[in-house]
Amino acid sequence: MNRERSGIMVSSQEEISGLRASISSLLTMKKLPIDSSEWGSYFDESGHLLKSQEYISSQILERGLDPSVRSEAWKFLTGYYSWRSSSDERLTIDSMRRKNYESLCNMCDRIQPLLETEHREFIEVRNFIKSDVQRLYIKDAQGNTIVDKNQLEKILLLNYVCNVEAEYQQGFHEMLLLFRLLVEKEHEIYWLFQFFLQKTENSCIMNIGVEKNLIMLRALVSFMDPVFSKHLEQKGRVVQSLFPWFCLFFQRVFKSFDDVWRLWEVFLTGLPCKNFQVVVAYTMLQMVRDQILREDMSGDDILMLCNNIIDLEANDLISKASSTYEQLLNLKDKVPKEFKEFFGLPQQ
């Protein structure tokens, strides 16, 4: 089915061709990220975007965002702001987000005594949150404290109370820290974190998305690399034990927070495909494939090797994973139906 974009009818085949060109550009040429000057040129005098969401998303996939524009751009990527909003409308939206956050905080304060007396789990979770946050190192190179731990505890507890489906899991405190370093206002931190989880379809949540990711990762290895898949299956539940990659959304495999943000903003674009996190995980497995087979590693040794994948560069990983996805595109006539649905591959 054709879709209309900016007045032009674009076929799905043309979209695929455009995506291939974007991936090819990503693989062959390193480009500078979108800086504040370029980002500003995307808007007219009223603050409306002159560029389409698709164009900006493809540029983020190829080049990423400069730190100077990341905090604002993420508000569009997460859905905090509408892509079609004006400057005035965004001021109104921000005010609404702040008021809604304050209302949630007031509600949480009112019901907390009831939760403490009626729900033992609430106290346990609150203690878990406090313990996790207290372990965070939040000082700069000069030893100055850069984050209020009480603020992080407050937001995490509110997230738990208001988001029963996602609950609370260890690792959220590390993720939330990155949002606090991205924006400063408390209501912005809370909503960006909420919208990030929603936009990525709770892919980092144990009881929602992580299990699905692991099932699809196992299936992807089996389809793309049967020899490696057979070896892993013989060593036990290796792939299923890689859940920390997804729970922290690969936060611990990179050199810097900038690299984490770089990958996460690609996830937010939905490019080059849906559920790109599984392609990323497969690509990481391929990095250690030959060593695993050559040394006939045991399951425990394989997991230790995978856990020692650190200090990666996001641009390099995104490039390799995009290449993997292009291989999958070339096999689209052979891939199972569930792959086409999960990764958003063309049905024809």
Results as ranks from 00 to 15, higher is better:
Lys130Leu: 05
Thr145Phe: 06
Trp245Arg: 02
Gly64Glu: 01
Leu157Met: 14
Pro113Tyr: 01
Gln194Asn: 14
Pro33Ala: 05
Tyr80Arg: 07
Ser203Arg: 14
Ser12Val: 09
Leu182Cys: 13
Arg180Lys: 15
Asn163Ala: 02
Gly209Cys: 06
Leu303Gln: 03
Asn308Trp: 01
Glu118Asp: 14
Asn202Gln: 13
Arg90Pro: 14
Glu14Phe: 02
Ile16Cys: 09
Pro113Val: 02
Arg20Asn: 08
Val280Met: 03
Phe339Lys: 02
Arg237Pro: 00
Phe267Lys: 02
Leu331Phe: 00
Asp66Ala: 09
Asn308Cys: 07
Asn127His: 08
Ser222Arg: 14
Ser229Leu: 07
Phe172Gly: 06
Arg90Thr: 14
Ser87Arg: 13
Lys212Arg: 15
Met1Ala: 10
Asn330Met: 08
Asn207His: 06
Leu26Met: 05
Cys162Leu: 06
Val279Cys: 10
Lys99Cys: 04
Trp39Met: 07
Leu312Ser: 14
Glu116Phe: 00
Phe250Cys: 04
Arg5Cys: 10
Val164His: 04
Val227Glu: 13
Glu4Lys: 08
Arg289Thr: 04
Met175Thr: 09
Asp132Pro: 05
Ser322Ile: 06
Glu184Gln: 12
Asn315Met: 07
Met1Thr: 06
Val280His: 02
Asp94Lys: 15
Val161Glu: 01
Val335Trp: 00
Glu295Tyr: 07
His231Thr: 11
Thr117Pro: 00
Lys235Trp: 00
Lys185Cys: 03
Pro346Asp: 01
Glu118Leu: 14
Leu268Lys: 01
Asp296Ser: 09
Lys274Pro: 04
Phe223Ser: 05
Leu312Met: 15
Val335Asn: 02
Arg90Glu: 09
Asp316Ile: 11
Ile215Phe: 10
Thr324Arg: 09
Ser12Met: 07
Tyr42Ala: 06
Asn207Arg: 11
Leu329Pro: 08
Gly64Ile: 02
Gly344Pro: 06
Thr92Phe: 13
Gly299Ser: 01
Leu158Ala: 10
Arg84Ile: 12
Met206Pro: 07
Glu165His: 03
Arg20Asp: 01
